[in-house]
Design a binder for these strands. Structure first.
Lengths: 182, 182
DNA sequence: CGCAATTCGTTCATATCTCAACAAACCGCG
DNA sequence: CGCGGTTTGTTGAGATATGAACGAATTGCG
């Protein structure tokens, strides 16, 4: 893709960082456009050059994070599950602030869980075991829904409880379980 | 003074930060304008909108720091020495990276010590004890030179040796000594 | 409810920054 | 020395961000 002007990247990064920060301090709906602009050290009008409103900004912020996450495509049907999940849990850990906020706050982001789920199920698709016959009686969408919701549930629990186990341990256990489910 | 456009401040701060960082990694003379621009995430040409060359940038960087330091004018002839010096040593600590680089590197900043000295002596001027008669036989400039070089020397030692005592302890001791000298 | 204050979204003219290109100066090296 | 490659400083056209202003929501409160 055509390379983007450096100023655009700087502005958008500052804005997204500002939103994440502010979300840890107050409910998303209570955050004002002016506050975001101040925190990002950007003129208020500049926000409207990039986003419709603060909800659009939140949307694109989520989109960015999810895209980043999906680029951890080491799960290119290559590694074993227990290995492949490590970078993911490390990613969750690195973005702990964002995830915990998105999962805790109750304002806008009910949709966040759903988007996570879709992203995971998409990733799981090519992982279903078709070589053996242990899944002959199972429908794809059932298996995907099963493993997907389980994965999201575990992540949510892990984040909410302050990441009681290290990423590696989580990856190993969750990897085992997902492997059994697909 | 007329308020400065936000972009100017952002750019200049990024540039100064970049220089400080780079100076910890290599000799100032080996730093290239392009490197500074890259580190600051700024177009190379932009640098010339603000500075003549990298030496000018370093100059203004020093100027900025010294001005910042002088604005710690709690020593408005108000507090006792041992108290008044605390914010200064905290300032040195906060800018440890800069000071240690400026005092260690041997490229450009031989002049740095001299500038520090001048700044301190200027600040000492109004602090000379004229009320008692214990200084009647002493010249101002002698006392200033004496206390100033001593102060610079101690700071240099403290920074070079990795700040072996906390700022408060340093402020207390140096405060006592300067008080005796003026 | 009704008013005051805040926030929002938009507009405009202008300042600053960007990118690409250029010639000149500088550099290391055969 | 002389040559390629790098760095420098400058330029110009265009893109983006700024600040100030405005009326229209929205909010908080008596």
């Amino acid at each position: 893709m055509a390379k983007v002007d450096r100023r655009i990247l700087k502005t958008q990064e500052a804005l997204k960082k500002a939103v994440i920060e502010l979300m840890t301090e107050k409910n998303f709906d209570d955050i004002t456009i002016q506050e975001i602009a101040d925190r990002a050290n950007v003129n208020r009008g500049t926000i409207y050059l990039h986003y419709q409103d603060k909800y659009d900004l939140l949307d694109q912020l989520i989109e960015t994070l999810l895209r980043e996450m999906c680029e951890l495509d080491e799960w290119a049907c290559q590694l074993e599950w227990t290995e492949a999940l490590v970078p993911y849990f490390e990613f969750f850990e690195k973005n702990y602030l964002f995830f915990s906020t998105m999962l805790a706050s109750k304002g806008a982001p009910e949709a966040f869980r759903a988007r996570l789920l879709v992203a995971f199920m998409e990733g799981f698709k090519c992982e279903i075991d078709r070589d053996s016959d242990r899944n002959t009686d199972l429908n794809d969408d059932v298996m995907l829904q099963y493993a997907g919701t389980a994965y999201v549930g575990v992540i949510e629990w892990w984040i909410r409880n302050g990441m009681p186990y290290p990423p590696q341990a989580m990856a190993k256990q969750v990897g085992t379980l997902i492997g059994r489910s697909l």
